[in-house]
């Protein structure tokens, strides 16, 4: 059994260690494996606090579209470890909605183990009140995994200055013919956009909800089925409007 993590471990630096202690040891990881050449879509909703480990195995040419929606009141950590074989594709959308005192984390480790695999991550964190949202995203490209393409975009929206967002990308690349576009930004709602909406008749809270919904929607663009996408958008909209 693995030892209880401490603050010294990079991957646990922003965790709520008190909560982790109570949850330790974690349940075995849930396995999502996609067979060679097949495609699959998975939605993982985390409403309950806890340690949620996912292990993703993508065989050669397999595709997985994975969306993770984290919105719990207590401490929640979703950790994804993904192995991509030759020509596999992983599309990962992450949404984390935090309010109250919640500490929530999305931790990903995407391993490009063979040539020609692609991964695309879009993670959007929204933190309000005194909540903490963290995204740790590590991408590892093995020595012979040439022509890998790993795209990573992480953005956090801080609704109140008492809230905290941590975004930490990490690249570990041993192959030389690799594309790795990545971007991380933390920001607040655009005041000019808010005023524009207000001036047309939207109360401030509704304007903020609309802007936040648009911010989050980026994480769902990988879903092919528009009805699933709309259902997830509606779920986040509900969270936003409750606070309006």
């Amino acid at each position: 059994m693995t030892a209880l993590p401490t603050r010294k471990a990079e991957a646990w630096r922003y965790a709520d260690l008190k909560a982790v202690e109570a949850l330790w040891p974690p349940q075995p990881a849930r396995l999502i494996s996609v067979r060679a050449g097949e495609a699959q879509e998975e939605i993982v909703r985390v409403r309950e606090g806890g340690l949620h480990d996912l292990r993703v195995e993508l065989a050669a040419g397999a595709t997985l579209r994975l969306v993770i929606l984290v919105q719990s009141s207590g401490y929640a950590r979703v950790a994804v470890e993904a192995h991509l074989n030759e020509g596999a594709h992983l599309d990962l959308g992450g949404i984390l909605l935090g309010d109250g005192e919640a500490t929530q984390e999305i931790v990903t480790e995407i391993r490009h183990s063979a040539p020609g695999a692609t991964s695309r991550q879009r993670v959007r964190l929204v933190v309000d009140d005194r909540s903490t949202g963290t995204y740790l995203g590590r991408i590892a490209v093995a020595r012979d995994a040439q022509k890998s393409d790993a795209e990573q975009s992480a953005r956090a929206l801080v609704l109140k200055r008492t809230a905290t967002a941590n975004l930490k990308p990490e690249l570990e690349i041993y192959a030389d013919d690799v594309k790795c576009a990545h971007g991380c930004t933390v920001g607040e709602l655009d005041k000019a956009a808010r005023f524009y909406l207000q001036s047309r008749g939207l109360p401030r809270a509704l304007a903020d909800a609309l802007l936040t919904r648009a911010f989050v929607a980026d994480a769902l663009t990988g879903l092919e089925d528009s009805s699933t996408r709309e259902a997830l958008e509606a779920e986040t909209a509900e969270w936003l409007e409750q606070r309006a």
Partner: peptide
């Protein structure tokens, strides 16, 4: 409030209209 002014019948056409991606 700004939205109450709008509902009361005031409309401001902006010199620099704002872009709002995603809405």
């Amino acid at each position: 409030e700004p939205h109450e002014r709008a509902a009361a019948g005031l409309f401001l056409g902006f010199q620099y209209p704002v872009e709002i991606p995603g809405v």
